[in-house]
C-alpha cells in the first residue's frame, strides 16, 4: 500500500506539472462556462419552464458535458502508460518492486482525481445561480449532489477506458484516439433508447445509455443500475488494463 501512495503522489505531480493538464482545465472551464452562460441566457428570457432538477440537467447533462468529456478524458489519460512505454521509463518503473495492479491503480486514481479537480471550479455555477436569486424554483440540493455523482461515475468509466487504451499502445495519439472512439461510441449509443426498437433492445439500450443516466442523475434520481453499470465497467476496464501490462511480458 505504501508503494500505491508513492506512485499516486508521483502521478499527481506529473499531471499537475504538465502543461497539458492546465490546458485541459482551461478548455474544460471554457466549455462548461459557455454551457452555464447559455443556461443563464435561457432563464433570463424566461421562456423555459423549468423545475429545480431540470436546471441542473441543463447545467451538467447538456451536450457540452459530453463535448468536454470526449476531449478531456483522452487528454488526461493518453500519457499514463503509453508515454512511459514509449520513453522507456516503464522499464524502470516495472523493475521496481511494485505489482502491475498497483501501478495501474495509482495511474488511474491520479487521473480520476485530476478529473475531480476539473469539476471543482464548476461549483461556482450553482453558487452564482443562487446569488442571482432567480424567480421560481430554487436549485435543488439533492439533484445537484446526484448530478455531480453521475458526472463522476461517467468520468470514472471514461477514464478507465482511457487508461486501458493507453496500455495497449506506445503512441499517445493512438491512445487518445482509442479513448475518444470508445467514449464516442458510448455517447452515441446513449441515444439508442430514443430511437424506436424492440423491447429487449430498448431496455438494454436504456441500461447502457449515458445520456439518459446523466439526465436522471441531474434531476436527483439515484438508481443502483447506472451506478453498477459504471462501476462494473470501470472495474472490468482496469482489470483488462492490468492484464495488458502483464501480457507485455510475454509479447
Amino acid at each position: 500500500m505504501r508503494s500505491f501512495g508513492v506512485l499516486l503522489r508521483r502521478e499527481l505531480g506529473a499531471i499537475f506539472l504538465s502543461p497539458m493538464a492546465w490546458t485541459a482545465l482551461t478548455f474544460f472551464l471554457a466549455v462548461m462556462g459557455t454551457s452555464f452562460w447559455m443556461l443563464l441566457d435561457l432563464l433570463s428570457r424566461g421562456a423555459e419552464r423549468t423545475e429545480g432538477g431540470e436546471v441542473i440537467g441543463q447545467l451538467l447533462g447538456s451536450i457540452f458535458f459530453w463535448l468536454a468529456l470526449l476531449i478531456v478524458a483522452p487528454v488526461i489519460t493518453m500519457r499514463t502508460i503509453a508515454e512511459e512505454r514509449r520513453s522507456g521509463t516503464f522499464e524502470m518503473l516495472m523493475t521496481a518492486p511494485v505489482r502491475d495492479g498497483t501501478v495501474v491503480l495509482a495511474k488511474y486514481t491520479a487521473a480520476l482525481l485530476f478529473y475531480a479537480v476539473l469539476w471543482l471550479p464548476t461549483l461556482i455555477y450553482p453558487l452564482t445561480l443562487r446569488l442571482l436569486r432567480p424567480f421560481g424554483a430554487p436549485l435543488d440540493g439533492g439533484a445537484l449532489a446526484a448530478g455531480y455523482l453521475g458526472v463522476m461515475l461517467i468520468g470514472a468509466a471514461a477514464i478507465a477506458a482511457g487508461v486501458f487504451t493507453s496500455s495497449i499502445t506506445r503512441s499517445q495519439v493512438t491512445a487518445a484516439l482509442g479513448a475518444f472512439a470508445i467514449i464516442c461510441v458510448f455517447f452515441l449509443a446513449g441515444f439508442l433508447p430514443y430511437i424506436p426498437h424492440g423491447e429487449t433492445v430498448a431496455r438494454t439500450a436504456h441500461y447502457a445509455s449515458g445520456v439518459s443516466h446523466l439526465l436522471d442523475f441531474a434531476r436527483g434520481v439515484v438508481d443502483t443500475r447506472p451506478i453498477a453499470f459504471y462501476l462494473i465497467n470501470t472495474a472490468w476496464l482496469l482489470w483488462a488494463t492490468v492484464r495488458m501490462t502483464e501480457a507485455r511480458r510475454w509479447k
Binding site: R2, S3, V6, A14, L17, G88, T89, E91, A96
Partner: peptide
C-alpha cells in the same frame, strides 16, 4: 530512461520510497 520532469532529489526520493 528517467522521468525527465522531476528534480534529481525528487526522483531519487520517489525511487527510494518505491
Amino acid at each position: 530512461p528517467l522521468y525527465s520532469d522531476m528534480r534529481v532529489d525528487e526522483f531519487l526520493r520517489f525511487r527510494a520510497a518505491l
